[in-house]
Design a protein around this nucleic acid. Structure first.
Lengths: 255, 255
DNA sequence: TCATTCGAACAGAAATAATGTTTGAATTGA
DNA sequence: TCAATTCAAACATTATTTCTGTTCGAATGA
């Protein structure tokens, strides 16, 4: 269940996306709360680096030309990501041992898995932290170096660790998915880890939101037909879905 | 502030320490709550590995004393721990690669190291998270399973990882320090990891606040003379300090 | 078998978090 | 500089969550 506060935060971001900026008073009016509440919201969102406050109101923190940093991606399209997370989690059985990728989509999956009885090996410190206070999840960490910003685990140690173990499933995310080039990743270190993960898991479940479609990263992870299931959101175009379904094992639209 | 539940958990453990074991009914009577509440407490404490339930009651898992949970320890003596943290950090050179123990003292060291140029291999997820937003620290994770509550990393994978690497220093914490028994730890898994860490680091720096003095845990980590330096706080008694200085390489009082 | 213990499901109580109000300080623009 | 506005601390009030007790059918063990 999403709390009133979370919905309101999404509302603030939505309004800012429409108009670029907004006053505290305006936000309070449109969302039906007092200015003080809006101020507290803005303070939190600014701490997350999602927006920038100015005297009287706030504006979005990033320009449209750069890819927004993690805290921002995490908040944007939170609803769609949550749906993907729930759908992916439904493909995991209690008792399974899984590898769980990092990124905002991986985190969405983690949030659903927190109350499940599963063994999780996260490929990101951020995802690991999401399980920290879970009493049901058996958390195991792969070794390796932590890449700043994304907090993903990579390097020879990570790959060695994966090769030394076996998992029921690998919940994979990627920078891009394309019919021609399959699943791809911008960061070469992360891609190497993902390739190793594909190799040590019985089955692969890909979780990619529609914004990744037809984007191609630098390094190929695996082909379209490798995952037993590809879970995406309802914004995926009908055309793309058809093409995917021709080549992939199973394509699931969450929501 | 300690919650009623925390006090009651301590009470359960205290009673068990007196008598070795106790019935659910007995615990409920003495602590002034219903049996259902005791059952829920026992379930949680069993999950933490502190005690073992049997039909009708529970007994201690080891014949052990039990430390207050992390959030409590973290707050207790926060100032003294910070001083210890600063002093320990001054013994680490820029560029060093170190292993950093978990626990509240380890976290205090981490908070000081956050802005330093060092490579850190933390033995706890909680300590790792403290470095997550550091741009100067090169963070590397050991593999292994994450123990609930403490979030420490342990098991064969952790030990394998440490044995496969080499470090300039190991910042060690412990459950107890005593002249006769050296450094000791309550949890056997953690102790095994600590022993391995001692073996792969050029030098060991022990960070132990005065409350650990003359307490003896279940498993021995190493002798008093192993660390190149023992850092403690000003509450350590003059007598204990003298005894320590006779046996240890170097004893430093922070503050 | 039969007394006892266990734990799920629900209800009420206690504790915590979120929001609104008031107020005086800080900021802005004329 | 002032006057108007915005800001945020402190407290009051309201929601929400967590905790505890109760009941009751299932599980346990002598």
């Amino acid at each position: 269940m999403t709390s009133a506060k979370q919905r309101r935060h999404q509302g603030v971001l939505e309004i800012l996306r429409e108009t670029g900026k907004a006053t505290v008073n305006e936000l309070g009016m449109r969302l039906g709360v007092t200015e003080m509440t809006i101020r507290r919201d803005l303070e939190m969102l600014e701490n997350d680096g999602v927006l920038q406050r100015f005297h009287g109101g706030a504006k979005l923190a990033f320009g449209s030309s750069y890819e927004p940093p993690f805290p921002v991606r995490e908040k944007i399209n939170a609803d769609r990501k949550r749906l993907i997370g729930e759908r992916v989690a439904s493909l995991i059985d209690d008792g399974d041992a899984i590898i769980l990728d990092g990124g905002s989509t991986g985190l969405a999956v983690a949030e659903v898995l927190v109350d499940r009885e599963v063994t999780v090996c996260p490929l990101s410190l951020r995802v690991a932290w999401a399980f920290a206070r879970s009493s049901t999840v058996n958390l195991i960490m792969p070794g390796g170096s932590v890449r700043p910003a994304e907090l993903s685990l990579s390097g020879a140690d990570t790959i060695d660790y994966l090769r030394g173990h076996h998992f029921d499933a690998y919940v994979m995310t990627a920078s891009g998915i394309s019919l021609q080039h399959g699943f791809t990743e911008w960061n070469a270190d992360d891609a190497a880890v993902k390739k190793a993960a594909v190799g040590v898991a019985d089955r692969v479940v890909a979780a990619v939101d529609s914004s990744k479609m037809n984007r191609v990263g630098f390094v190929k992870i695996c082909g379209i037909d490798v995952p037993a299931a590809i879970v995406t959101d309802a914004e995926m175009s009908a055309e793309d879905l058809n093409h995917l379904r021709n080549q992939a094992e199973d394509v699931i639209v969450a929501g």
